[in-house]
Design a protein around this nucleic acid. Structure first.
Lengths: 191, 191
DNA sequence: TACTGTCATTAACATAGGTTAATGCAATTA
DNA sequence: TAATTGCATTAACCTATGTTAATGACAGTA
């Protein structure tokens, strides 16, 4: 039951078994329904989680209510509004479930105790943030130098499974374009 | 002479004085002229540096030779193609001096020895990467949800000094637009 | 089966930003 | 001073993407 999280931990770094157990002891499994928020924009995050099952979307919204999808996170990912949580400031974005999901929630205050008590967690966090940094860097590059159809190609390459789990207008908002524009791009590609 | 780097280290994390000295002992001051590269796209980085004086630009270029500025780094910043260096893969971007500069270069292999020998460096690196992650996240947001003139406003707010140290076509390439478009935006703003 | 709601597609038109080329302007050098 | 060089500006035109609205295609449900 915990094996997915344990495997994910092992992928990132080595941890003493007793520290691993401590982490497991402060996680609790939570079901979250499609459409429900995990983190709400404007609130200070007090928790983060690991996804056992389901799919999540991070999104910004502007004054007009337009939503911009920052990213998708499926099974075996951590979901967290990291900057906001670590600085204890309101999150700039929301995290919501796109499918019925099961997650393992970790309370930030509990995590901090663990983190401060053993250096292995610094290494763990470094691996995690390093990975996040590399992903952000790749995304920044795409947004800076590629046009919409090139970005769509990359999306299809990087997230082949997602194309079928996610609505097109959500893919469009991830690419920074409208559903209409995505529809045009798709039409072009099949010609 | 070393004080700027030492101050920067202190801003990021606490380090034992003897570890700090070890780091200083493997840095060497290097002069680098305006227009010269520090890291060349396509090469595997074997070094990183701290900027004592001068200004640097990170940039991608595409097949057509168009350059896209990823970021600007002035005094008291570290300059590094981090992903490429830590994975020992070719860098996707170049780093060049925009002004005559003085930097403190650290050899990657030497740094790795230090890093592996004392846990304080993991904490240091976590602080550094965490900061980088937050910056990337902010930039991703700008590129995803803001139009060119909004991005220019943010540039002016975040880098007020840079407007005068950097050519307009370089600012344009940072914003992901052409110099012509930036000129139009500037004209609009003064009306 | 018919009704409803949700989303993708398409078309017509609007706009931001790209492209190319000419012009202006200031700094550097002959 | 005149000539040159390197940018920024401007104008004319082009293209990708946005906007709005109509149409189509399904899936769920009465």
């Amino acid at each position: 039951m915990n094996s997915a999280l344990v495997r994910a931990l092992h992928m990132l770094t080595h941890l003493p078994p007793e520290e691993e157990s401590k982490l497991l002891s402060i996680t609790h499994v939570v079901a979250i329904n499609k459409g429900e928020p995990f983190i709400r924009e404007g609130t200070v995050p007090q928790k983060f989680a690991f996804v056992n099952r389901g799919l999540f979307r991070y999104y910004y919204s502007n004054e007009k209510g337009t939503e911009f999808t920052k990213g998708f996170f499926a099974e075996n990912s951590f979901i967290v509004s990291y900057t906001a949580m670590s600085k204890q400031l309101p999150s700039h974005y929301s995290i919501e479930a796109l499918e019925d999901a099961e997650i393992m929630v970790i309370d930030y205050a509990e995590w901090l105790k663990l983190f401060r008590a053993h250096p292995c967690w610094t290494k763990f966090l470094l691996s995690l943030i390093e990975k996040g940094y590399m992903k952000k860097e790749a995304r920044e590059r795409e947004l800076l130098i590629l046009n919409a159809s090139e970005r769509y190609r990359i999306f299809l390459r990087d997230y082949p499974q997602l194309e079928h789990r996610v609505k097109q207008h959500q893919i469009a908002s991830y690419l920074g374009i409208t559903p209409v524009a995505l529809s045009r791009i798709r039409k072009e590609m099949t010609l």
